[in-house]
């Protein structure tokens, strides 16, 4: 094989590819070895290899923990809602931005909706809490003016959930739209012209040309986001949660931070992370096999 003309011809390409292989080996594959600490009683002194093996003890601790069921449920619920409610927004946004014909206006809108993505959750969380707080929040000020009474939006699980999902959409929809916009830019313009000549309205064109053209992209994004359904981004939920809603807001990542990382139980944290990844992998594989039935599989 190494003597074949084709290999020799492509040697410069292999060389250029070498750093990427090295990157993946060093930063993606090698650290996976660290997963062994999920099966060991890791401590700093003995290190990863020296620590004693404990088998599945940590998994046993995790799944006999009475709070774990609640935490898993919270994680799935929050993340499922985020996916179902949040998924259509970037697509809608991209379709709408795509319909704008004046380029200066289009650029302004694009910049405006991308902007929240660059704000840290610490900032966004602070803004959200200030807006919805009971004594001084602007929403409650308006409500007091209208009805004479205020409402604890952040203490009530239903309204907290809405705020949680809504703030997530506000922050990420614009950024998520980029990939759809790129796909839309690639659509053959003659299709629109032909449809226009046939008398198709803007809505019809959107439905029959734009959407089908970006369908593969939509599927890819869907499959990838299903893979992360076991993860609720730590920053967002950590910033927004408070004691009153912890029964629905305590998720794997926050529990892992509190008990695993700050409690110094790294093996336990690794075990939970490992479990989370395996579920994620299974979900991705399932989603992909379903998508393949519709000829839109990722691989």
């Amino acid at each position: 094989m190494f003597k074949s003309r084709r290999f020799q011809y492509n040697i410069p390409l292999f060389i250029m590819f070498a750093p990427i292989i090295a990157y993946f080996l060093i930063f993606k594959f090698a650290p996976m070895g660290g997963l062994v600490i999920a099966f060991k009683n890791y401590n700093f002194t003995d290190g990863i290899w020296g620590s004693a093996w404990v088998g599945l003890d940590h998994f046993h601790t995790l799944f006999t923990n009475p709070n774990m069921l609640n935490i898993l449920r919270n994680t799935l619920v929050l993340s499922f809602l985020q996916l179902v409610l949040g998924f259509p927004f970037p697509i809608l946004l991209a379709l709408m931005i795509n319909e704008i014909r004046r380029s200066w206006f289009k650029k302004t809108v694009q910049t405006a909706v991308f902007f929240p993505h660059f704000l840290n959750w610490v900032i966004v969380g602070g803004i959200v809490i200030t807006i919805f707080s009971q004594e001084t929040g602007i929403v409650n000020n308006i409500m007091r003016w209208l009805t004479g009474d205020s409402y604890p939006y952040l203490y009530n699980t239903g309204s907290w959930l809405a705020i949680f999902i809504g703030s997530g959409i506000w922050k990420s929809a614009g950024w998520g739209a980029i990939i759809y916009l790129a796909a839309l830019a690639g659509v053959d313009q003659s299709l629109y012209e032909a449809a226009g000549l046939d008398g198709a309205s803007r809505l019809r064109q959107m439905w029959h040309i734009s959407l089908p053209s970006i369908r593969p992209v939509i599927f890819i994004i869907l499959i990838l986001s299903i893979g992360s359904i076991m993860e609720v981004g730590f920053d967002q939920v950590y910033m927004l949660q408070n004691s009153a809603v912890s029964q629905i807001a305590d998720v794997i990542s926050t529990w892992n931070y509190r008990v695993g990382i700050t409690g110094g139980r790294f093996s336990l944290a690794a075990a939970l992370g490992f479990f989370e990844s395996i579920i994620g992998l299974i979900l991705v594989l399932t989603a992909n096999s379903i998508a393949r039935r519709f000829n839109n599989g990722l691989w």
């Binding site: 709070n67 305590d250 509190r258």
Partner: peptide, 15 residues
């Protein structure tokens, strides 16, 4: 472990 696991849910309950 028991303490770090139960403390916060307990204080949340009281809150």
């Amino acid at each position: 472990f028991v303490v770090s696991n139960v403390n916060e849910p307990m204080s949340d309950l009281w809150s």
